[in-house]
Simulated scan of single mutants.
Amino acid sequence: MRGEASCIADRTSRDAMASRIAALKDDAWKLGNEMFAITSTLDANPRLYRALTDPGRPTQDKVTLLHTILGNKVMPLTMQIMEDLVSREWSRARDINNAVEDFGVDAMMYKADADKTTLQVSIELAQLQSALLNLPVVRSRLSQEAAPVAARLDLIHAVIDPMGFHPVTIRLAEHCAANPRRRRYLETIQWLIGKFSRHMGEALVVVTTATPLTQKQIDDLIKIYSKKVGRPVHINSVVDPTVLGGMRVQVGDEVTDNTVVAQLENLQRKAKAGARI
Rank of each mutant, 00 (worst) to 15 (best):
M1D: 15
G3K: 08
R14N: 08
D15E: 15
A16P: 07
A18T: 11
I21E: 11
K25W: 09
D27Y: 05
W29P: 05
K30V: 15
F36H: 02
F36V: 07
F36R: 02
D43F: 09
P46M: 10
P46I: 06
R47Q: 14
R47Y: 12
L48E: 03
Y49I: 03
P58H: 10
T59L: 01
T59I: 06
T59D: 09
T64G: 01
T64M: 07
L65D: 06
T68Q: 03
I69P: 03
I69Y: 05
D84E: 01
L85G: 04
V86P: 04
S91E: 04
I96G: 07
N97A: 15
N98C: 13
A99M: 00
E101W: 14
M108H: 01
M108F: 07
Y110Q: 08
A114S: 11
D115G: 02
K116C: 03
K116E: 14
T118K: 00
L119S: 11
V121L: 07
S122L: 15
S122I: 12
A126P: 03
S130A: 00
A131T: 11
N134V: 15
N134I: 13
L135Q: 12
V137Y: 12
V138M: 07
R139F: 10
R139T: 11
S140F: 12
R141C: 10
Q144R: 14
A146P: 09
A147E: 12
A150F: 01
A151P: 01
A151K: 14
R152D: 02
L153M: 02
I156A: 06
A158M: 07
D161S: 06
G164T: 08
F165H: 06
H166D: 03
T169Y: 04
A173D: 07
A173M: 06
C176A: 15
A177G: 01
P180Q: 09
R181M: 13
R181T: 11
R182L: 12
R183M: 10
Y185M: 08
I189Y: 12
L192Q: 04
K195W: 02
R198W: 14
T209S: 12
D220Q: 00
I224Y: 10
I224N: 09
Y225D: 01
S226L: 01
K228Q: 13
H234K: 14
N236Q: 15
N236P: 06
V238Q: 10
D240M: 08
D240R: 00
P241W: 04
T242A: 13
L244F: 02
R248C: 00
V249E: 00
V251I: 08
D253N: 12
D253S: 15
E254T: 14
N258L: 12
N258V: 11
V260T: 05
A262V: 05
A262T: 04
Q263M: 11
N266C: 08
L267T: 04
Q268F: 10
R269N: 10
A271C: 02
A273C: 12
G274I: 13
A275N: 03
R276C: 07
R276V: 15
